[in-house]
Simulated scan of single mutants.
Amino acid sequence: MIRTWVGACAAVATLFASTVQAEDIRVMTSGGFTAAYKILGPQFAGESGNTLETTLGPSMGQSPEAIPNRLARGEQADVVIMVGYALDDLIKKGVVDPKSRVELADSRIGMVVRQGEVVPDIRTVDALRRALMQAKSIAYSDSASGVYVQRELFKRLGEPEVLGAKAKKIEKTPVASVVANGEYEIGFQQVSELLPVSGVSFAGRIPEDVQSITRFAGGIPVNAAHPALAKALLDYMAAPAAQTVVKETGLDSVPH
Rank of each mutant, 00 (worst) to 15 (best):
S201W: 13
V197W: 06
A203E: 10
P207N: 10
V210C: 11
L195F: 04
N181I: 09
R205N: 08
R215E: 09
V191N: 08
V210A: 13
G218I: 05
P196M: 15
S198H: 15
V191A: 08
P207Q: 12
Q190L: 09
G219Q: 06
F216W: 04
A217G: 00
G219D: 02
F216I: 06
A180N: 09
P221H: 14
G187H: 01
I186G: 03
E185V: 09
P207F: 14
V200L: 00
P207G: 06
Q189M: 05
E183L: 12
I213E: 12
Y184A: 03
A180C: 08
I206D: 06
A217V: 00
G182N: 09
S192N: 11
G218R: 00
E193L: 05
V191T: 12
I206Q: 08
G182P: 04
A180Q: 09
L194M: 02
E183P: 02
Q190R: 04
L194K: 02
V197M: 10
Y184K: 09
I220M: 11
E185Y: 02
I186P: 04
Q189S: 07
R205F: 03
E185T: 09
G182M: 10
A180R: 11
P196N: 15
L194D: 01
I220C: 09
A203V: 14
G182W: 03
G187Q: 01
P196W: 15
R205H: 05
G199F: 13
A203S: 15
Q190A: 13
I206A: 14
G199T: 11
Q211I: 07
E193W: 04
G204H: 03
E185F: 03
Y184S: 04
L195C: 06
F202S: 03
G187A: 06
F202R: 02
D209T: 12
E208C: 00
G204N: 08
P196A: 14
G182E: 06
S212H: 11
Q190T: 04
I186H: 00
L194Y: 05
S212R: 10
S212E: 06
I220R: 08
Q211P: 00
V200M: 04
E183G: 11
A203R: 12
R205M: 13
T214C: 05
S198I: 05
Q190Y: 04
I206H: 10
V210D: 07
Q190K: 05
G218Y: 01
S198P: 10
A217F: 00
Y184W: 11
G182R: 07
E208K: 15
P207Y: 14
V197L: 05
A203K: 13
A203L: 13
E193V: 00
A217R: 08
G199D: 10
D209K: 15
D209N: 14
E185C: 05
Q190N: 12
N181A: 10
R215C: 02
R205Q: 13
I213D: 00
S198L: 14
G218V: 06
G219I: 02
N181Y: 09
Q211M: 10
R215M: 11
S192Y: 11
V210T: 06
E193A: 08
